[in-house]
């Protein structure tokens, strides 16, 4: 039972030498990320003539969306010249099922492991723990063989399958640890009241999982959207995600390099996870801090 948080008025603090040092350090760290981002943004709004002058920090002489629209509608990735659009929709199509499958499976498994008596639960957890540390590159080839023999290699299904499988160990551990902290008596009461695995999950556990769901959602959206290796390995023609399209566009070897289009394309690809951060960021921090105070 969470009591209403008590807010104490903050004591006004004098700025000390130590806090100045911290502020300076943090500002430098922020600049480290902000300067490249600034270059990225201003370049994407410039015309090629201005870019060729070489002043990368200058503001655009004429602000234009041309590079953005070219990147979205017309840029060439390999042989097709339909812009990033197709990749975007591919990524969305990969993201949805991967999210639902990986989170649903790991949530129920974590719930079962944490709150129900299961044979070999300890061993299973240990194996999960080991799996969480196996790098993808090591099992890439066996996975390719597996998807080939399942007849899904080169399809969107293969990408979703691999994303889901790879996320399961870590997500299951996260959910299991979250559920382990739910007061034991609540589960005992629910077992005596209902005894139904699914009923307790849906009516009691799921409504208590809001915080951790947000955390996992952000983690998964970011990692699935930003993934390149799985997409390029398991995707076929027309099923590759946005990141692969972006890479193909940028590494074009003929003609001139259109920096403005490349920057716009990179920004377009990076926007969806950013939006998720801005929308869910507040809950994300709450979720991470919630470990100790829920229930």
């Amino acid at each position: 039972m969470t009591d209403a948080p008590v807010m104490y008025p903050r004591k006004p603090q004098r700025i000390k030498g130590r806090s100045i040092a911290i502020i300076v350090f943090l500002s430098m760290a922020a600049l480290f990320f902000c300067i490249p981002l600034y270059v990225l943004v201003v370049t994407s709004f410039k015309e090629m003539e201005q870019i060729r002058e070489g002043a990368i920090f200058s503001l655009p002489a004429r602000w234009t969306w041309e590079a953005w629209s070219y990147a979205w509608f017309d840029a060439c990735s390999g042989l097709t010249c339909e812009g990033l659009r197709q990749g975007f929709w591919n990524s969305v199509a990969i993201l949805g099922p991967s999210l639902v499958a990986s989170i649903a499976l790991s949530m129920v498994t974590g719930y079962a492991l944490a709150l129900w008596k299961m044979k070999w639960a300890g061993t299973f957890l240990f194996v999960l723990f080991l799996c969480a540390f196996v790098p993808f590159q090591i099992i890439m080839y066996p996975l390719i063989r597996l998807t080939v023999s399942l007849g899904i290699y080169g399809s969107m299904t293969a990408i979703v399958f691999v994303h889901t499988a790879l996320a399961l160990p870590v997500l299951t551990l996260i959910f299991r640890n979250f559920y382990k902290d739910i007061p034991e008596d609540i589960i005992k009461a629910a077992v005596m009241d209902s005894g139904s695995f699914w009923r307790i999950f849906i009516e009691i556990i799921l409504p208590m999982s809001g915080n951790i769901l947000i955390v996992v959602l952000i983690m998964q959206i970011t990692s699935i959207w930003n993934d390149y290796l799985i997409g390029v390995t398991f995707g076929g023609l027309g099923t590759k995600p946005m990141t692969v399209h972006l890479a193909n566009m940028v590494t074009v070897s003929t003609g001139t390099v259109s920096y403005n289009v490349n920057m716009a394309a990179a920004l377009l690809t990076a926007i969806p996870p950013l939006v998720i951060y801005f929308v869910l960021g507040k809950f994300f921090v709450q979720g991470i801090a919630a470990g100790a105070i829920k229930g």
Partner: peptide, 25 residues
């Protein structure tokens, strides 16, 4: 049926929901 030291009420349910869930089996 059992009454627990920590009450073990379902935190996301209302009082009425708590009473009803007791009959769900």
């Amino acid at each position: 049926s059992m009454v627990f030291q920590s009450y073990a009420l379902y935190p996301t349910k209302t009082v009425e929901g708590n009473l009803r869930f007791g009959l769900s089996a």
